[in-house]
């Protein structure tokens, strides 16, 4: 799994690449929690994610909740079809704000 961050129009874009699974989700969690503690707007770009498991989804949930408590915004962008199915299974597609692209999220 690779993580890259960029800033655009005041938002921090955290992009994941590869598998966000049991092995890598602790790193993802650390990165996301740091991101939401320091930035009021975080966009998680998932278009290069090949697989996300429940531990990865749990990191997204925890970071989203932390961002909300901090009064910030947190959204997902370019979610792959397989990742979306995992989110839909637990009805999280109705909880997260999901944009079709990073540009739309920055919009």
């Amino acid at each position: 799994m690779k993580i890259s961050t960029t800033e655009k129009n005041g938002a921090l874009i955290v992009a994941f690449e590869g598998d966000v699974d049991l092995e890598h989700s602790p790193t993802a969690r650390k990165e996301l929690l740091a991101a939401v503690s320091k930035n009021s707007a975080v966009i998680v770009d998932l278009h290069l994610v090949s697989y996300i498991d429940s531990s990865g989804v749990a990191c997204l949930v925890e970071s989203f909740q932390t961002a909300r408590k901090n009064g910030g915004t947190f959204c997902l962008a370019a979610v792959s079809e397989s990742a979306l199915r995992v989110l839909q299974l637990a009805r999280l597609d109705k909880i997260f704000t999901i944009h079709t692209s990073v540009d739309e999220a920055i919009g």
Partner: peptide
């Protein structure tokens, strides 16, 4: 696993 307890609970 050695996941954080918070992650395990959410899972």
């Amino acid at each position: 696993t050695s996941l954080d307890p918070q992650t395990m609970e959410i899972m």
